[in-house]
Simulated scan of single mutants.
Amino acid sequence: MEKLQAALDKARNSRRERTDPGVEVKPVAKETQPSGVDARWQALTSFDAKDADLIRHRVVTRHARKEATPFDILRTKALLQMRQNGWKRLAITSPMPQSGKTTTACNLALGLGRQRDLRAMLFDLDLRDPSVHAFFETQPPYLIGEMLTGAVSFEEQALRYGDNVAVSMSLHPETDPTRILLAEDTAEKLTSIQDAYEPDVMIYDLPSVLVNDDTRAFLKNADCALIVVRSDSTTYSQFEHCQREVAEQTNVLGVVLNAYRHDKRTT
């Protein structure tokens, strides 16, 4: 009986507190804003790209479709192998230009972006001939070289595609790209970005290995590398030379054979 009376008294007092204007009522907590890593990603300026423009540049992984399947397979195989080895930094290069390395890099980035539980970053480090901006048909506010040398912050320079893909690119070539790619300041900058934004994969679109020393200067900062070769133009000696150069600096994750034409008449 005493317990029942105590419960009734407690309920009566509770009703009185809700109706008595003299009783202080604590405000209901508002929904909290993103903090930490989520807030840093949301602070990046967002951009969008038209599907028709992407397809014109052979970037087909924005949505799941038949054309995206080869890149989706590459994405999954690369991601699983990188996770198995604890790798997060993926360089993409080729023996010679016009092999499709930037196309591969952009498709991998957007393919990873479709995985909502992942965060991916794409850096256009082909500083003599930057072209990622043309693939997305957008203009970054600052050059990637300005960010890497500390003139502007990553937050100011990089753009965000969707919620989970960050793209750092340039509009104009750098006058001395090797100086930037070889610098310890660049390595430290990339490490600070990785620590602050915690991406699952950082993709570096690098120059072709056999045309200058830029890629050699940078590969020490990558955990692994994909080599893109073009079936109708890359010679075996070029591929062999490139593979040897890359393997001296980092792990060769695999080789992508581009522009292969399968003739059903030969099967």
Rank of each mutant, 00 (worst) to 15 (best):
R83C: 01
G113Y: 01
T102S: 15
Q98D: 10
C224Q: 04
L108N: 06
G145Y: 00
A39T: 11
A49F: 02
A105V: 05
Q5K: 14
Q81V: 00
V252R: 06
C106V: 14
T149M: 13
L181R: 08
S46H: 08
Q115S: 14
Y260H: 14
Y142Q: 12
P173K: 04
P95L: 06
R128W: 00
P130E: 00
F71Y: 15
E184C: 01
R160S: 12
V246E: 03
V228A: 07
A7P: 06
T175M: 12
N13D: 09
V28E: 12
Q238I: 04
Y197G: 04
R83N: 09
V256M: 10
A222L: 05
T186P: 11
L118P: 14
D9K: 15
A158E: 05
C242G: 08
H172N: 13
M82G: 11
C224H: 03
Y204P: 14
N258G: 09
R261M: 03
A29T: 11
Q42A: 15
R114C: 02
N107L: 09
L127F: 02
Q5R: 14
R62H: 05
S35D: 06
Y197W: 05
L171N: 12
I180C: 07
A247E: 15
G150P: 06
R128L: 04
A52S: 15
D9F: 09
S153M: 06
R75Y: 02
T102H: 08
P34D: 02
S14G: 03
T175C: 02
V60E: 03
T69A: 14
A259V: 05
L74Q: 05
L8T: 10
M202K: 08
P173C: 03
S192M: 09
K88H: 14
E240P: 00
D205M: 07
L159A: 10
A183N: 15
Q42T: 14
A187I: 06
R16H: 03
G111M: 01
G150L: 05
R65D: 13
K3L: 13
Q115Y: 00
S233W: 00
V152Q: 09
I227L: 14
V211P: 07
H63L: 11
T19P: 00
P130S: 05
L8N: 04
A120P: 13
L171T: 14
V37A: 04
V60Q: 04
D163I: 05
T267M: 07
R179H: 07
T61W: 01
D38V: 06
M169H: 07
L4R: 14
A222S: 13
N251G: 02
C224E: 00
Q98L: 11
T250C: 12
K220E: 03
D163V: 04
E188A: 15
A52D: 14
